[in-house]
């Protein structure tokens, strides 16, 4: 009797995940093997046997690796790596400062100020950069006024603004897991290192850094993966030359109305992400912590 109640409890969420998540993914997989029709939609398959044996169903996947699109993937990976590295270098000292330099009673406030932006709209925070970077924006007006430049710098709609927007959005996700791993370090280890004559830098390199490696790896993972599939930042702050794979997929679905091709790119992207996560789990074990 008791057990049955729990099965009833499980049904709604299982239904949501199976009917509205797993099944849609399978539909999309099926679509990725079809061809786009003349008016959008799909080309009907005349002869299934021939379709299968002529490998026509692989057309979209072959097209994914067309030389036209390779630069977009490379740029996406490059931007994601750059964002992750810069977030790590900006974020680690912040986490270090909050964990080891701030008085215990003030830690909550410092952390709170890192988290608050995450609660506010990502779209709006990204848009706000337009106000700062555009030709008549804050930075250009300031530089013009003090006479450092005589025409506005092109700060917006290029790779620089995309990178800046991504770093801005992802930085807290790097700081938080590193902070968590710094907090776990036994203070006596740090003191022992200092007692043995190591200076702060050496203590950091030999004691603190190795102990915070798990936090760094979590931070790198939860920054890199969303950045790879990002859309809003490159759409709002990027120019025509800085589109990423997320924009490419959106464009196929919404603008070009080529669902089969869009689906194929989406599956290649997902597979790439899942392989990365598999490697992550294999080498460092454990589950991905969420928030």
């Amino acid at each position: 009797m008791r057990g049955k109640v729990y099965w009833v409890f499980l049904i709604p969420s299982a239904m949501v995940l199976i009917v509205f998540f797993l099944f849609p993914l399978l539909i999309m997989l099926y679509y990725s093997f079809l061809q786009r029709g003349i008016y959008g939609g799909f080309e009907p398959i005349e002869n299934l046997k021939e379709y299968i044996f002529s490998f026509a169903w692989l057309k979209n996947y072959i097209r994914v690796f067309d030389s036209l699109y390779i630069p977009i993937y490379l740029r996406s990976i490059y931007i994601a790596i750059l964002t992750t590295i810069i977030c790590l270098f900006i974020g680690y000292p912040v986490a270090y400062f909050i964990a080891l330099k701030v008085k215990p009673e003030n830690k909550i406030l410092y952390l709170f100020l890192i988290i608050v932006p995450l609660w506010t709209s990502f779209l709006i925070r990204t848009y706000a950069w337009i106000l700062i970077l555009r030709d008549e924006g804050l930075i250009n007006l300031f530089l013009l006024k003090i006479g450092l430049i005589n025409k506005p710098l092109p700060l917006l709609y290029n790779e620089f603004s995309v990178l800046l927007g991504l770093i801005y959005g992802e930085l807290p996700f790097m700081i938080l897991p590193i902070y968590a791993s710094l907090e776990k370090i036994d203070i006596s280890l740090i003191e022992a290192s200092k007692d043995l004559g190591a200076d702060e830098f050496r203590t950091f390199k030999r004691v603190i850094l190795p102990l915070t490696l798990p936090g760094i790896i979590v931070g790198v993972t939860i920054v890199f993966i969303p950045t790879l599939g990002s859309f809003i930042v490159s759409d709002l702050l990027g120019g025509a030359k800085s589109i990423l794979v997320g924009n490419l997929i959106q464009n196929q679905f919404i603008v070009a109305r080529d669902k089969p091709f869009g689906s194929a790119i989406a599956f290649v992207l997902s597979s790439f992400v899942l392989v990365l996560l598999y490697i992550y789990r294999k080498f460092w074990g454990g589950k991905i912590e969420v928030l």
């Binding site: 099944f23 859309f231 997320g246 669902k259 989406a266 992400v273 991905i288």
Partner: peptide
């Protein structure tokens, strides 16, 4: 299956739901 929606890129879920 519970982890997947959190992990896969948002754009993939968007495409899947539209297809569905």
């Amino acid at each position: 299956l519970i982890y997947l929606p959190v992990i896969i890129p948002e754009i993939v879920l968007a495409g899947a739901l539209l297809s569905f």
